[in-house]
């Protein structure tokens, strides 16, 4: 009798604790600390001047400055730019051109996985520190331009900060 009453009390208190926790959780907004606003840019590095008919614009000075101190090209034209907010357990595909796409997703709270697709084929996978992006670093995938000798393409990923 005594044991049964004690067990009933424990079960009752457990249910009360669970109910209180559910009530608390229901009133708490979902934590979205892993969300990341990303900016991806497809750039064309060239020594040529911008073609007259082209609508391309020079990439922003900050990115151009970083690239110019490493690479030889005079101009870095922005072909496309896309912004996306990446959430945990979420994979986003960004089509930067007819030939260039990337998949981005969180591997964990600290690491991004970026898959590069060239002409529809999975070409390369890299992993990127989220903390480095949040510090303002750039993650760049690049290669020679097949169509224009001496030119190059760049996929630049950065944290999109206002």
């Amino acid at each position: 009798m005594g044991i049964k009453t004690g067990m009933n009390r424990i079960i009752l208190h457990t249910l009360l604790c669970v109910a209180a926790s559910l009530w608390f959780l229901a009133g708490t907004p979902a934590v979205s600390g892993a969300d990341l606003a990303l900016r991806s840019q497809l750039l064309w590095g060239t020594d040529q001047e911008k073609p007259r008919e082209s609508t391309y614009k020079e990439v922003d000075p900050k990115v151009k400055g970083k690239l110019s101190r490493i690479f030889k090209w005079k101009h870095y034209f922005e072909i496309n730019q896309q912004k996306v907010t990446l959430e945990a357990n979420d994979t986003k595909r960004l089509k930067l051109s007819a030939k260039c796409e990337i998949d981005v997703r969180f591997l964990d709270a600290h690491t991004l996985e970026i898959k590069l697709y060239g002409e529809g084929k999975w070409t390369k996978t890299i992993r990127q520190s989220v903390a480095a992006l949040n510090r303002g670093e750039l993650a760049v995938l690049a290669g020679d331009d097949k169509d224009k000798y001496g030119d190059a393409w760049f996929v630049v990923l950065s944290a999109d900060r206002p």
């Binding site: 970083k66 060239g118 070409t123 390369k124 670093e137 760049v140 995938l141 690049a142 290669g143």
Partner: peptide, 10 residues
Amino acid sequence: EGITVVWVNA
């Protein structure tokens, strides 16, 4: 510069 580049060669 705070930049990491992966240069892809075909």
